[in-house]
């Protein structure tokens, strides 16, 4: 550790100074948070503003930032656009998420535990293969994979979007959780092993609860990934009644006219549940995990 500074003898003065420093620090943090928020909120602001513009106003030069005339009816018009069924597509998207997410969380953490904590022949090789599977550009495996699903009779169903997620939940999720599990002190599982717990019990009772911040990250990214996934649904779902929201968003793109106003309106509606999810899920993230009690 670095050089020690002796604590001030005058405890009162020290406290006072510390509080002032803390307030100053808080002020700086808030300033940074607010400036940063503004910068990162830009796309949302522009998106919401554009969703209220008329189609003519979108096509003016130079572009306006805020609408001259606010058109809330864009939302109703977008929702009821020709040949769309956004209610159904919302349901489809939620169904895919609900059927996928548990598979991702359970199987990715199970596999991650195996890679992080168990010793067995072939472990390194398989971990290498898991990682390697994301290194090949997906454009060239698209057609073989499509033909596989075709032979399984799964085209135009949700199976291709759901079932593979139950087999490990994605290489990057496994890698992420493995990194987290390798950080957890071994004393925890050694103590549990002495108590006669199996690896399965240790994973389920100790690692799952302890890795909550990481599991919540995995959840975020999985839900968001499905919510905005375009290529998968585009390739596998052909009937409009099976579309997802992200795919439906592209129904506004025509040959000669792209209804940017409607795209932005539906995008805004699509973003709202994600914002709610982010805020709500934050409450369940334990602020760091305290190991001192367990260590002693």
């Amino acid at each position: 550790m670095t050089t020690l500074t002796r604590p001030s003898l005058n405890a009162h003065a020290h406290n006072h100074q510390a509080r002032r420093q803390k307030q100053l620090g808080m002020g700086a943090v808030y300033a940074l948070l607010i400036i940063g928020s503004l910068i990162f909120m830009m796309p949302l602001i522009i998106m919401v503003a554009t969703s209220f513009k008329s189609f003519s106003e979108i096509n003016t030069y130079p572009p306006t930032i805020l609408p001259n005339v606010w058109l809330p009816e864009n939302y109703a018009n977008a929702w009821n656009y020709q040949n769309t069924n956004f209610t159904r597509w919302t349901f489809n998207t939620l169904l895919i998420i609900a059927a996928t997410l548990p598979g991702v969380i359970l199987t990715s953490s199970l596999c991650a535990y195996g890679f992080a904590r168990l010793e067995f022949p072939g472990r390194k090789v398989w971990f290498g293969l898991v990682l390697a599977s994301v290194m090949l550009p997906p454009q060239v495996t698209l057609i073989p994979l499509y033909i596989l699903f075709y032979n399984l009779g799964w085209l135009n169903t949700f199976y291709p979007l759901i079932i593979p997620a139950w087999f490990g939940g994605g290489a990057l999720n496994i890698f992420l959780l493995r990194q987290f599990y390798m950080q957890i002190p071994r004393e925890l599982d050694e103590a549990a092993t002495l108590d006669g717990a199996s690896h399965f019990t240790i994973w389920w009772r100790i690692y799952m609860p302890l890795s909550r911040p990481a599991l919540i990250s995995v959840t975020f990214l999985t839900v968001l990934g499905i919510w905005n996934d375009f290529l998968g649904p585009l390739i596998y779902l052909t009937s409009p009644e099976n579309y997802t929201l992200a795919l439906g968003l592209n129904m506004f793109q025509g040959l000669f006219i792209t209804r940017t106003d409607y795209i932005m309106a539906i995008s805004t509606l699509m973003v709202l549940p994600m914002i709610v999810m982010f805020i709500v899920a934050q409450r369940y993230v334990v602020q760091g995990f305290v190991t001192s009690g367990l260590k002693g």
């Binding site: 199987t107 199970l110 195996g114 168990l118 010793e119 067995f120 087999f167 490990g168 690896h199």
Partner: peptide
Amino acid sequence: KTIEGYLFIGPVVLGLIIW
């Protein structure tokens, strides 16, 4: 240990083989 290990990483091993 080997069997136990493959039970844990089984999903992804199968997944890699199939998909």
